[in-house]
Nucleic acid binder design. Structure first.
Length: 851
RNA sequence: GGGCGAUUAGCUCAGCGGGAGAGCGCUGCCUUCACACGGCAGAGGUCGCUGGUUCGAACCCAGCAUCGCCCACCA
């Protein structure tokens, strides 16, 4: 193909789909165990089958694809294992909302079987959309191994894990306070509760004395407490005061009556109470508050439950039975007021828990649930993080995760939902309880509850590889190499995978964890559907091209969260165009040059050396998950060294080796970039006639033989000299060829060609401009009329250099500096001083000559 | 209430002990045969504030301010 036939701008739409297909067809993504190769494995954090992929997925996908392609090119047997998650509560919520919206029905109208079927169908549709999006991203996953948490084999892994933990006694059933979502009618875990500040009220409630004795210490015939949830009064079983509270000494042991339900309860002393808060008297409602539950346990108090599972008041609620909790609150407060039992009511800002999935206010509620005790599981995980068996990037998250594991509460894993893995526990006719995959007999009934979705996710790195079977895949690819994830699921997911991996495989599930940035909206807030500020990555792919978006994302991805800016995609697109046109140039470049030197020129040696150095640093930064730094390195090399300088040098001062080296360096650059920008590099490789496909090529390795510090120094001096002349031309508006003298140590051919300066041995008798270039000076001959301008310019330069000289002198005359600073620093400062002194001398002499 | 992080050019962000950087935007020149999604040359910053450590601080320490995120059972 010739240059003229290739468009000036790469058209991603025209080739992306075709190239992806070619990759797939070639089997390049397929990875099977191969004993004489090192394994490298990443399991894709399975997207929820609830919606579409978002920017976070795009970023994480780009990160993982970059790492897996690099590993593949480096000769590892690299498996990126794809999958999707059934997302129990999230998906159930989506389907329930849809059901209500479209048919006006609830899940109970449909019944369990029918509802689960709806979920299954919905998940199927979403799943195919998500997988299509992964392909658009260019994800080089092994599609043959696609896993789904509801696959038969995966379900078996989940049941096996649960039964195993049950047998170990690490799973137990207990009646405890849980976070109850009355809308979902299910318990949820602590991590699924969002606490939000809301403006509420703090109500005073008066409990009349029931023992017939006189009024209390404050002269009132009642004891007053403060509560934000007055409806829970109905479930009160005691009042408590601080044992140190002198105001209430006499109160302890007396009886009061709970309004409306007329229960007589005792006033107790308990150190939990803070005498400073409110009236200093606390009501105890063990069924509806975790602290009260603890007090109740300590004092052997009964727990009176006043709520139904849908949040209405149950039969224990006296006159309020059947009302919703909101209605009950209003009605109860009104009745208290009527009966003179309402104390002070004031505005009160406090935190209220909301369901992470549906937003309903959470009720702490006493219920029978399945729990996993965490202490035993957490300990080895803490140890693995401490010893660095798992390394987390950035390392601040290593400590955070340890801290969290150290303070772990038991995990409520049962959910009163329908979409998910039903708990494999069977209740026998004689009250027997057995954990098993199959029903033990006809009379036995299976537990209605399902498992928390994160229980199955916790098994992801090994369940996807075939566990509990000792498959070849599992033995070869486990532990996986790296897990890349967003920080919001570090606890929900990552920490639990570590615990589960250690429990079931005796080894950590991954060696490295990369905690990536969160992609924020342009104004720095979180993207969310409700705010309407989300960006669809697919739209970006359409507009800028996938490679451009991927590059832009990685360029912004450091340890900080970042606001997404379209500029980054534009930056990536610009880079793609630049590379594309370099390839067009190379195509047009002759295969042979006739008039150059036979051996590689200093420029040739420089670009090889610089490429080599870039390859090394690029590889290192990717290894350390410093993506932003890696992108910067390769961008700067490709654009500001290869394109800006070497390509220009190739045009004007080639050697006979230049055609080969130009092609070699372009090829190497494409291979460096292929992991990040797979499509355009693959296409470029094709048009420049590279062998095979880049996806199967090798990653450039650092080669010490190519290092050439002298060539690098020469080019550095040459570039400075050229820039000095260009700068002078722009400022003084001088065009055309100049006659001049270059400083020592520059490549004269390159200098004269790029600066447009014809070299002269000596310029005596000419009027010249004296241009500082680094530590040297370029002189160019000028016409007489520029004399005044040159005098001005010289004065400016002189004062600039005087300033620098002064600074160096100041430092060196400071005895402490000379004494305490490292010798290299002092030496550098001396050299700087000498250099500037020489420069100044030259400039001053010139100035005097011209005055 | 605890913990973590951020504050650097108009904007988005790098740099994290030895003379302030990138991209975008801005200014001037260049439609030169790879690229105007371009080239060359520029302008633009007391590196949040106040102290401290150091020969030397954007960088380390302390405090403050502002913003953000996690964690926590105070009614």
């Amino acid at each position: 193909m010739s240059q003229a036939e290739i468009p000036k701008i790469f058209d991603p739409k025209a080739v992306e789909a075709r190239i992806y297909e070619e990759w797939e067809r070639s089997g390049a993504f397929e990875a099977d165990p191969e004993p004489n190769k090192e394994p490298y494995c990443i399991v894709l954090p399975p997207p929820n089958v609830t919606g579409a992929l978002h920017m976070g997925h795009a970023l994480n996908g780009a990160i993982q694809d970059t790492l897996i392609r690099r590993a593949r090119m480096k000769g590892y047997k690299a498996l990126w294992l794809p999958g999707v998650d059934h997302a129990s509560i999230a998906l159930q919520n989506v389907v329930e909302r849809k059901l209500l919206r479209e048919e006006g029905k609830t899940r109970w109208d449909l019944g369990r079987e029918e509802f689960v079927e709806r979920c299954r169908v919905f998940a199927q549709e979403v799943r195919s959309r998500i997988l299509g999006q992964l392909k658009r991203l260019g994800a080089s996953v092994d599609w043959r191994r696609l896993r789904y948490t509801m696959d038969e084999e995966y379900v078996d892994s989940v049941l096996t894990a649960f039964i195993d933990l049950h047998e170990l006694g690490l799973v137990y059933r207990g009646n405890r306070i849980t976070n109850w979502c009355p809308r979902d009618r299910s318990a949820i875990s602590d991590l699924e509760v969002n606490y939000e500040e809301v403006d509420g009220r703090l109500y005073g409630v008066r409990y009349p004395f029931a023992d017939g004795r006189g009024p209390g210490p404050d002269g009132n015939p009642y004891a007053e407490v403060n509560t934000t949830r007055p409806e829970t009064v109905l479930g009160d079983v005691a009042l408590v005061v601080s044992p140190d509270d002198e105001r209430y000494e006499e109160l302890v042991g007396r009886k009061v009556t709970v309004p409306f339900v007329k229960r007589e309860i005792e006033v107790l002393a308990d150190s939990y109470v803070d005498p400073e808060f409110g009236t200093g008297v606390l009501k105890v409602t063990p069924a509806h508050d975790p602290n009260d539950f603890e007090i109740g346990k300590r004092r052997a108090l009964p727990a009176v439950n006043v709520l139904n599972h849908d949040g209405t008041i149950n039969q224990n609620g006296g006159p309020f039975t059947g009302m919703t909790r909101e209605e009950a609150r209003t009605a109860l407060v009104a009745r208290l007021d009527e009966e003179g039992l309402l104390g002070e009511v004031r505005e009160y800002r406090h935190r209220v828990g909301h369901c992470d999935r549906c937003g309903a206010v959470i009720e702490p509620w006493l219920s029978e649930q399945w729990w996993v005790s965490m202490k035993e599981l957490a300990e080895p995980a803490i140890e693995a993080l401490r010893t660095g068996e798992v390394t987390v990037y950035p390392d601040s998250w290593q400590r955070e995760t340890i801290r969290w594991l150290e303070n772990l509460q038991d995990w409520n894993v049962s959910r009163q939902l329908w979409w998910g893995h039903r708990i494999p526990v069977w209740y026998g006719p004689g009250g027997e309880v057995v954990a098993a995959k199959e029903s033990p007999g006809v009379e036995w009934e299976q537990e209605e509850d399902i498992l928390d979705t994160w229980f199955s996710s916790g098994l992801w790195p090994f369940a996807t590889l075939g566990w509990p079977e000792e498959t070849e895949d599992l033995l070869y690819f486990y532990p996986t190499s790296l897990l890349s994830t967003a920080r919001e699921i570090m606890y929900l997911w990552v920490a639990r995978m570590i615990m589960m991996g250690l429990r079931f495989r005796g080894e950590v599930p991954f060696e490295k964890v990369n905690v990536h940035s969160i992609v924020l909206a342009e104004n720095g807030t979180k993207m969310s559907k409700s705010k309407g500020n989300t960006i669809d990555p697919i739209d970006l792919f359409d507009e800028y091209g996938t490679d451009a978006v991927r590059f832009g994302l990685l360029y912004q991805s450091s340890t900080q969260d970042f606001s997404y800016s379209y500029e980054r995609a534009a930056l990536g697109r610009g880079f793609v165009t630049k590379l594309w046109n370099m390839a067009r140039f190379v195509l047009s470049y002759p295969m042979e040059v006739t008039d150059g030197a036979a051996e590689a020129s200093v420029s040739d040696r420089w670009i090889l050396s610089s490429f080599n150095e870039t390859a090394r640093e690029y590889d290192r930064t990717l290894e350390e998950c410093e993506f932003s730094e890696a992108m910067r390195l390769v961008y700067d090399f490709a654009w500001h060294e290869l394109a800006d300088w070497y390509v220009e040098i190739c045009k004007v001062a080639p050697s006979k080796e230049t055609p080969r080296i130009l092609r070699e360096v372009l090829d190497g650059t494409l291979r460096l970039l292929h992991p990040v920008m797979p499509f355009v590099t693959e296409e470029m490789n094709r048009i420049v006639g590279g062998e095979g496909m880049l996806v199967r090529s090798s990653f450039p390795q650092f080669d010490p033989a190519l290092e050439d510090a002298e060539a690098a120094r020469t080019l550095e001096r040459t570039r400075l000299a050229v820039s000095a002349v260009r700068s002078f031309r722009a400022e003084s508006r001088v065009e055309g060829e100049l006659v001049g003298r270059a400083p020592k140590g520059v490549d004269l051919t390159v200098f004269s060609a790029l600066a447009g300066v014809r070299p002269a041995e000596q310029l005596d008798g000419w009027f010249t401009a004296t241009l500082p270039a680094g530590d040297a000076v370029v002189e160019v001959a000028l016409s007489e009329e520029l004399r005044r301008k040159e005098i001005e310019r010289l004065r400016k330069e002189i004062s600039r250099i005087e300033g620098e000289l002064g600074r160096a002198e100041g430092k060196l005359s400071n005895e402490k500096f000379v004494e305490r600073a490292p010798e290299a620093v002092v030496t550098a400062e001396r050299e700087k001083l000498n250099r500037n002194a020489g420069l100044l001398e030259t400039l001053r002499t010139r100035l005097e000559e011209y005055l």
